[in-house]
């Protein structure tokens, strides 16, 4: 064997070893570490993992987050992409906070998860963002309501009894339904405003934000978002809307009286608030 040929084999072995390390064992032998551009990612993975790329294209991230946003520009960053920090840069505010205060968020925060493991059942003490939303390397959103309850039940039941999961998910739906009733009530009350619902648009906007908090609380299992940032906050919105409507009606009645119109003593709010 010539020295050149031996050198070539050794170089090949070194390159192979590097790639294997970087890829966690399942990458092609010839892939360098990077850095790559988005175009280069798609060029290669479009051929290698067409289903995965198609999932990403059809999913919510295609419009806002490219491969590099979660994976960085070099190979070997899979464990990093699985961590919550890869998500919370964009998904900040109440989305991140409702999860961070849940038991799941707490256990991920204080535990030492082995992020080199695939996002599969039995591999994690508690789910990070990606465990549920990108379960088993899903590149869409596994928790998309369109996927139906069976998908959620399967993922949650990796740790929880199937009946527990089913009943908790149903309870979350009921909780959100109640919050939607409150929004409908708010819209009905706003419609009674003598200057039109536009006069209380800011209060209605707050109501919608609090409805979202309830949904985040149910989805992320945060009692604090279900309750204090959610249901009683919605109760406060309803009261403020009613107060604004009542005051406007009373002031209107007083002004009318000053102009000498209409008879006195009419209830300020006849009729029911209408639903949406």
């Amino acid at each position: 064997m010539s020295a050149t040929r031996l050198g070539g084999i050794l170089l090949g072995a070194v390159l192979l070893a590097q790639t294997v390390t970087a890829q966690g064992g399942d990458g092609p032998a010839t892939v360098p570490e990077g850095p790559f551009t988005q175009v280069e990612c798609l060029e290669c993975h479009g051929a290698r993992d067409p289903a995965l790329v198609a999932q990403w294209r059809a999913g919510p991230h295609a419009v806002a987050a490219d491969c590099l946003a979660c994976h960085g520009e070099r190979h070997g960053a899979l464990p990093k992409a699985r961590q919550d920090a890869a998500c919370t840069g964009c998904h900040a505010g109440s989305v991140a906070h409702s999860y961070a205060t849940s038991k799941h968020g707490v256990l991920v925060r204080i535990g030492r998860p082995d992020w080199t493991l695939p996002l599969d059942r039995g591999n994690y003490r508690a789910p990070g963002c990606a465990y549920c939303h990108q379960h088993a390397a899903d590149h869409g959103d596994t928790m998309d309501p369109g996927r139906g309850p069976a998908v959620r039940e399967w993922i949650c039941s990796g740790c929880h009894a199937p009946r527990y999961v089913r009943e908790q998910l149903e309870a979350g739906d009921r909780l959100a339904d109640i919050a939607r009733l409150k929004l409908a009530e708010a819209q009905g009350v706003a419609a009674l405003h003598p200057a039109g619902a536009a006069a209380v648009a800011d209060l209605l906007e707050t109501t919608e934000r609090h409805l979202r908090n309830v949904r985040l609380g149910a989805g992320h299992q945060s009692p604090d978002y279900q309750w204090w940032h959610g249901q009683p906050a919605l109760d406060g919105d309803l009261i403020r809307l009613r107060g604004a409507v009542a005051q406007a009606l009373r002031e209107g009645a007083a002004a009318q009286q000053d102009r000498g119109e209409a008879g006195p003593d009419q209830p300020v709010a006849a009729g029911k608030p209408r639903g949406p």
């Binding site: 009373r250 009419q266 608030p273």
Partner: peptide, 11 residues
Amino acid sequence: SNAGDLWLAGP
């Protein structure tokens, strides 16, 4: 003035 059913009605 009476608040009517403003506080009592709604879905």
